[in-house]
Amino acid sequence: MTAGATVHASAVLVGDRAVLIRGPSGSGKSRLAFDLILAGRAGQLPQAILVGDDRVHLDTVAGQLLVRPARELGGLIEVRGLGIRHCDFVGEATVGLVADLAANDAERMPSPEALFIRLNGILLPRIPIGAGYAPLPLIAAALMTTAGSGSVQPLDDCSKGIGNHISPNIATE
């Protein structure tokens, strides 16, 4: 087990894995955490519950990255316009996804290397999110879909050769 590092981040347990939310001050970490919780309550995502907001501890145990709230901040979340609020939380979760807000390497089609990060020796999926982009849809897409495979073939009538257009058969039936 590695010594627990305290990091400036938020984390939300979505289903059975936590989303670790990192970014500079004011980038929307608390907002994204609250949005994930609301999306879980609305049934748009699996159940989501706060792990920690603003500062969390990271530990490596048995090949997994665990996240815990900073003791003095357990169950507290900042809601802009309302201040610090109390909410349900869990004391520990396994990180399954890292969301980097205001990421300098965010691109429309990120390189495969940008979609992973090694934290405390553990390789994790990562989403680099550019400043000004809504992070919730990207997180939801990452949680609800799988990466594209090389077996996808473009449609014969696709002038761009990308295959992201509606088939004429579907549109005309």
Rank of each mutant, 00 (worst) to 15 (best):
residue 153 Q to N: 08
residue 111 S to D: 13
residue 49 I to Q: 12
residue 13 L to M: 07
residue 126 R to Q: 03
residue 114 A to I: 03
residue 68 R to G: 02
residue 121 G to N: 04
residue 64 Q to T: 11
residue 23 G to Q: 07
residue 135 P to V: 04
residue 109 M to I: 13
residue 92 E to T: 10
residue 91 G to L: 10
residue 9 A to N: 07
residue 173 E to F: 12
residue 126 R to M: 03
residue 119 L to C: 06
residue 6 T to K: 06
residue 26 G to K: 06
residue 40 G to D: 04
residue 92 E to A: 15
residue 91 G to N: 14
residue 28 G to V: 05
residue 2 T to G: 10
residue 43 G to Q: 00
residue 151 S to K: 12
residue 32 L to R: 02
residue 81 G to W: 11
residue 132 G to K: 08
residue 47 Q to S: 10
residue 15 G to P: 02
residue 5 A to Q: 15
residue 43 G to H: 00
residue 60 T to A: 15
residue 169 N to G: 13
residue 167 S to E: 13
residue 52 G to M: 07
residue 58 L to H: 07
residue 153 Q to S: 12
residue 59 D to A: 14
residue 124 L to H: 02
residue 150 G to P: 00
residue 153 Q to W: 07
residue 144 M to N: 13
residue 24 P to H: 13
residue 15 G to R: 03
residue 39 A to C: 05
residue 161 G to F: 09
residue 14 V to I: 08
residue 16 D to C: 04
residue 159 S to H: 12
residue 130 G to P: 00
residue 68 R to K: 13
residue 85 R to E: 12
residue 74 G to Q: 15
residue 123 L to C: 09
residue 95 V to L: 08
residue 87 C to Q: 07
residue 151 S to H: 13
residue 67 V to I: 10
residue 82 L to F: 14
residue 135 P to D: 06
residue 51 V to I: 10
residue 79 V to K: 03
residue 10 S to P: 00
residue 41 R to S: 05
residue 118 R to T: 15
residue 99 A to H: 04
residue 135 P to S: 12
residue 48 A to T: 09
residue 89 F to A: 15
residue 82 L to K: 09
residue 99 A to L: 06
residue 23 G to M: 10
residue 139 I to A: 00
residue 158 C to F: 10
residue 80 R to V: 10
residue 75 G to Q: 09
residue 109 M to D: 04
residue 60 T to L: 11
residue 105 D to Q: 12
residue 70 A to E: 15
residue 130 G to N: 01
residue 8 H to L: 12
residue 55 R to P: 06
residue 73 L to Q: 09
residue 15 G to I: 01
residue 101 L to M: 07
residue 57 H to F: 08
residue 46 P to T: 02
residue 19 V to E: 00
residue 6 T to G: 04
residue 118 R to V: 15
residue 134 A to V: 03
residue 64 Q to A: 15
residue 29 K to Q: 07
residue 57 H to P: 00
residue 111 S to E: 13
residue 59 D to P: 03
residue 95 V to K: 08
residue 126 R to H: 02
residue 16 D to H: 12
residue 37 I to Q: 01
residue 15 G to S: 06
residue 144 M to R: 10
residue 69 P to F: 07
residue 129 I to S: 05
residue 47 Q to A: 12
residue 110 P to T: 03
residue 17 R to Y: 04
residue 28 G to P: 08
residue 44 Q to H: 13
residue 134 A to W: 00
residue 17 R to T: 03
residue 53 D to M: 04
residue 56 V to K: 06
residue 80 R to A: 08
residue 123 L to Q: 14
residue 114 A to T: 11
residue 131 A to L: 05
residue 12 V to L: 01
residue 90 V to A: 07
residue 8 H to G: 11
residue 139 I to W: 02
residue 137 P to I: 01
residue 19 V to Y: 02
residue 135 P to I: 05
residue 147 A to T: 06
residue 2 T to H: 11
residue 61 V to H: 13
residue 119 L to K: 02
residue 149 S to W: 03
residue 53 D to I: 08
residue 44 Q to C: 02
residue 171 A to Y: 11
residue 15 G to Y: 01
residue 145 T to A: 05
residue 167 S to K: 11
residue 123 L to E: 15
residue 139 I to M: 00
residue 130 G to S: 09
residue 119 L to D: 09
residue 8 H to V: 11
residue 3 A to K: 14
residue 65 L to W: 09
residue 125 P to L: 06
residue 53 D to P: 11
residue 123 L to W: 08
residue 55 R to E: 14
residue 150 G to K: 14
residue 159 S to E: 12
residue 3 A to N: 14
residue 32 L to I: 06
